[in-house]
Design a protein around this nucleic acid. Structure first.
Length: 341
DNA sequence: CAATGTGTTGAC
DNA sequence: TCAACACATTGG
């Protein structure tokens, strides 16, 4: 509908589906009660739509299924689908891009550190939310992902001349996956020179070897400006908490971190496992954010998103999605604005 | 006219 | 945040 013409699915799908008033008892009866109803006089069609058993999936009047995800109090429409599970898949994809790898999904209980999982993480994180949403709405996500994978295999096989083919697939190099965020407390930015890392996240993402718990280890993080920060990371028995100590106060000082600000940690999805640290002021809007440091380079946040590689020769074209989003030019019409990453 | 997806509301 | 529901908008 919007700007494109490549809605291959719609054409075929529509034809077959619209035939009947579809009451949609296709797959599993699941929610038997809702769908089937007591038959008799009231057709399901006339009133209550069958609610979906999947998260982020809503029924459409015509028997199809819509997928949606919420962010910042606003709904982001992910498109409509013939099958309930397709919509659920779309939601799963979106939620992983919007909220990280280990979000609650409809299907994926399977994500592990398989290569496939890593590739998908790379793919997701190397595209803006708007791009992913666009792919979902056009039902081109799988194709794009497959293509990305093909490009990736090229990268894994350096050419004889020793160079690695660049161009597409390059985004995989810099892709990062979010690990976790923390809203810093007054003491995190005070004079204690330490950042408490929520146990839950610490143990999951920064596990310490039993012997090094108290001694700690040195962790290297890179910030937007590609500056490297080294922090001592250890476990304090006294408070039974994981902390970043030595080096932390310098970060606080340089970034002018204030209580309430948010520090986020990412890790490269590549084999290098490089760690990254970022910060931002409270998510809220309105507030004027002085943002002293971290100027223009925000545009290259994480160095990804800059490689269009889209094949949807439509409105989005291949403009840097970052640019699109900053300009508030969603995909086409009045798409809501989705901030980069 | 049918399908999409936004406006809106209330439950959680 | 999230889904239910109504219906304005859209596109053929």
């Amino acid at each position: 509908m919007d700007c494109s013409t490549d809605d291959q699915s719609t054409t075929t799908e529509t034809i077959s589906t619209v035939a009947a008033p579809v009451t949609t008892p296709p797959l599993i009866g699941s929610n038997g009660s809702v769908v089937i109803d007591v038959d008799g006089g009231l057709e399901a069609e006339s009133r209550k739509l069958p609610s979906s058993r999947y998260k982020g999936v809503v029924p459409q009047p015509n028997g199809r299924w819509g997928a949606q995800i919420y962010e910042k109090h606003q709904r982001v429409w992910l498109g409509t689908f013939n099958e309930e599970h397709e919509a659920a898949k779309a939601y799963d994809t979106a939620v992983q891009r919007f909220r990280g790898r280990d979000s609650v999904t409809n299907f994926k209980p399977l994500p592990v550190d398989t290569e496939e999982a890593g590739l998908e993480a790379s793919f997701l994180n190397s595209h803006s939310k708007a791009e992913i949403v666009d792919m979902l709405r056009k039902h081109t996500y799988n194709d794009e992902f497959e293509q990305s994978k093909r490009n990736f295999s090229l990268k894994k096989c350096p050419l004889s001349d020793g160079f690695i083919r660049s161009g597409h697939g390059q985004q995989l190099v810099n892709a990062r996956e979010p690990l976790f965020e923390k809203t810093v407390t007054p003491s995190d930015v005070g004079k204690l020179n330490r950042l408490v890392i929520p146990k839950q996240h610490a143990e999951k993402h920064f596990p310490l070897q039993s012997g090094t718990t108290s001694k700690g280890v040195l962790l290297h993080f890179e910030d937007v400006g590609m500056k490297v920060w080294r922090f001592r990371y250890s476990y304090w028995n006294s408070s039974q908490s994981y902390v970043l100590t030595k080096g932390w106060s310098r970060f606080v000082k340089e970034k002018n971190l204030k209580a309430g600000d948010i520090v986020s940690f990412q890790r490269s999805t590549g084999p290098d496992k490089q760690l990254y640290i970022e910060w931002k002021t409270r998510t809220g809007l309105g507030e004027s954010n002085p943002k002293p440091v971290q100027p223009v380079q925000m545009f290259r946040l994480f160095g990804v998103n800059i490689f269009g590689s889209t094949s949807d020769g439509s409105c989005n074209g291949k403009r840097s999605n970052v640019e699109l989003e900053l300009l508030g030019v969603g995909s086409c019409k009045k798409q809501r604005i989705i901030d980069p990453l």
